[in-house]
Write a protein that binds this DNA or RNA. Structure first.
Lengths: 119, 119
DNA sequence: TCACCTTTTCTACATATATCGAATTATCGG
DNA sequence: CCGATAATTCGATATATGTAGAAAAGGTGA
């Protein structure tokens, strides 16, 4: 990847035009790719899965670290990626930071990926 | 990424259990991540978009290279990634190789990513 | 066989990133 | 303010990868 990736804010849920609505623009492709990249990691998939299925709907950093069996700093890094992509929101309460998945962002991705959305 | 990624065949359309069906297993997370990674690149998004919206449903390597304005070897590499993830099928006819998107693979991904699939 | 075109494979390289441990920051209870 | 706990940031490192050009392979027609 010779050319450096531009920095783009992709934290809002709705991202771009559907891939089947016509040849996608460079910019829309980049935005979509950045969001997909946020999910394209086994650890982050597991984190999202834990968050989606957690009874309370939210889990703190340390419990997530225990859940995926990785260092807290690593988990914090992944959560930051997910947050930047709008997949997770975090809130500090006391000494803990609680995270929850943003289902609407996942849904937005699913819409964009729909191969039949415009047929 | 200290530990080397295992080599896994992810070329079949249906991939794994939904992320919201319960905390996902390590293996399922890996499979899903590999498929997402295949799509998590601007160039590959553009290729898939071109294929999905191509009138004939299929496009040869050289026309795709023209479409995304990259070297043919680069495009061939990306197509190989997409093929390995089951997102594209390719067929040689004469001197050209024609590629088409597998919509059912995209759909399978969408199902797995559905945050409400099991509520 | 030979010339030519298309595609893939090979090689090299620069960038990106997942991980951890250490240092730093934030919060709370004395 | 201090000590303890939780979280993030920072620095280092090994692995992964997108890209292009050169070489090789596949395919056609004379």
């Amino acid at each position: 990847m010779p050319k450096a990736l531009p920095v783009v804010d992709v934290s809002s849920p709705i991202c771009c035009t559907p891939v089947s609505a016509g040849p996608i623009s460079d910019e829309a492709a980049l935005h979509l790719a950045l969001r997909l990249k946020a999910l394209a990691d086994p650890t982050r998939i597991r984190l999202v899965s834990i968050l989606l299925t957690a009874g309370a709907g939210e889990v703190c950093t340390c419990d997530l670290a225990t859940g995926v069996d990785l260092a807290e700093s690593t988990v914090s890094h992944h959560l930051s990626q997910l947050r930047k992509a709008g997949m997770v929101v975090s809130e500090r309460r006391g000494m803990n930071v609680y995270h929850r998945a943003r289902a609407e962002s996942l849904d937005a991705l699913r819409v964009v990926l729909d191969p039949n959305c415009c047929t």
